[in-house]
Simulated scan of single mutants.
Amino acid sequence: MSVLVVGASGATGSQLVNHLLTQKHKVKVIVRSPEKLPKSWKTNDNLQIISANILDLSDKEMHDIVQDCQAVASCLGHNLTWKGVYGHPRKLVTDATRRLCNAIKSNNPQTPIKFVLMNTTGNSNRDLNEPISFAQKCVIAMLRLILPPHVDNEKAADYLRTEIGQNNNFIEWVAVRPDGLINEEKVTSYEIHVSPTRSAIFNAGKVSRTNVGHFMAKLISDDKLWAQWKGQMPVIYSKSNIV
């Protein structure tokens, strides 16, 4: 399978790429600074590195990049700096999601392409009646006002839910919602839930970035797992951090 990964140079995106390469997929990555990538990637015949800012690519370039891909995964996020949080592009994740989906649709694929978006437990799945405390609603409302990346994550998932929807001929999607991200070297046991089982604000759990990458790669590889979660926003926790 050929898979495009954007946000591949990030802490979680790099884990996803490693899992996909281990599974012997053909992987394309779009990165702004290829010199920062692991040396092993640059000599891997199954990896194609495209040096570009994703939002600077033309529609034709995007069309060509996704043309032979059976799956697209986005681990894009905002850098945790003043410029990354409050500078432009403020809608990086949303705009990239929209442009990638438009590129997929422009190719008129015969079978739907898998689109996996890394999102956050701070974003509710508004297709479901997910219970949220009044206090958490107040905090989320404040985050929408002061943290543009939070709004970006919400709008990216909403685009998939409302614009792509459940019955698109060209795209099927899953938005993976990790809780508090931590760094661990090895994949450990983790659990997947339809909705959060704890408050993302007041009682957050934890999940390793490598576990998130493993689950995203498994979604892409395992058609049975994909059928279970497509069109949904599963939440992932590491088992050692579940109470």
Rank of each mutant, 00 (worst) to 15 (best):
M1H: 02
S2R: 05
S2A: 10
V3S: 12
V3E: 10
V5M: 13
G7T: 06
S9A: 13
G10R: 01
T12E: 08
G13P: 04
L16E: 06
V17W: 03
N18H: 11
N18Q: 14
H19R: 13
L20Y: 11
H25S: 06
V29H: 04
V31Q: 03
R32G: 01
R32E: 03
R32M: 01
K36H: 08
P38R: 08
T43C: 05
L47T: 04
L47P: 01
Q48M: 09
I50M: 04
I50Q: 03
L55V: 04
L55F: 03
D56C: 01
L57M: 05
S58Y: 07
D59G: 01
E61R: 02
E61D: 14
M62W: 02
M62F: 04
H63N: 14
Q70D: 12
A73C: 15
S74V: 04
C75R: 05
G84Q: 07
V85K: 10
Y86A: 08
Y86T: 13
G87N: 04
H88A: 13
P89W: 02
R90H: 05
V93D: 06
V93C: 11
T97Y: 10
R99P: 00
L100Y: 10
C101Y: 09
C101R: 06
C101A: 15
N102D: 15
N102W: 02
K105I: 14
N107Q: 15
T111F: 08
T111C: 03
T111V: 13
P112R: 08
K114M: 10
L117C: 09
M118L: 13
R126M: 12
D127R: 15
L128T: 13
P131Q: 14
S133E: 12
S133I: 13
S133Q: 12
S133W: 13
K137M: 10
K137F: 06
V139M: 09
I140Y: 12
L143K: 08
L145S: 12
I146L: 15
I146M: 14
V151C: 08
V151N: 09
D152C: 02
N153G: 10
N153F: 04
E154V: 15
K155Y: 09
A157G: 15
R161N: 12
T162D: 11
T162L: 12
I164H: 02
N168H: 14
F170R: 05
W173A: 09
A175S: 15
R177L: 04
D179H: 09
G180H: 09
I182K: 05
N183A: 08
N183Q: 09
E184G: 00
E191D: 09
I192R: 03
I192P: 02
V194S: 14
V194M: 10
S195W: 08
P196Y: 15
T197A: 02
R198Q: 14
S199E: 11
A200D: 11
G205Q: 07
V207N: 00
T210L: 01
N211A: 03
H214P: 00
F215T: 00
I220F: 04
S221T: 11
D222F: 07
L225D: 02
A227M: 07
K230A: 07
N241I: 00
V243Q: 10
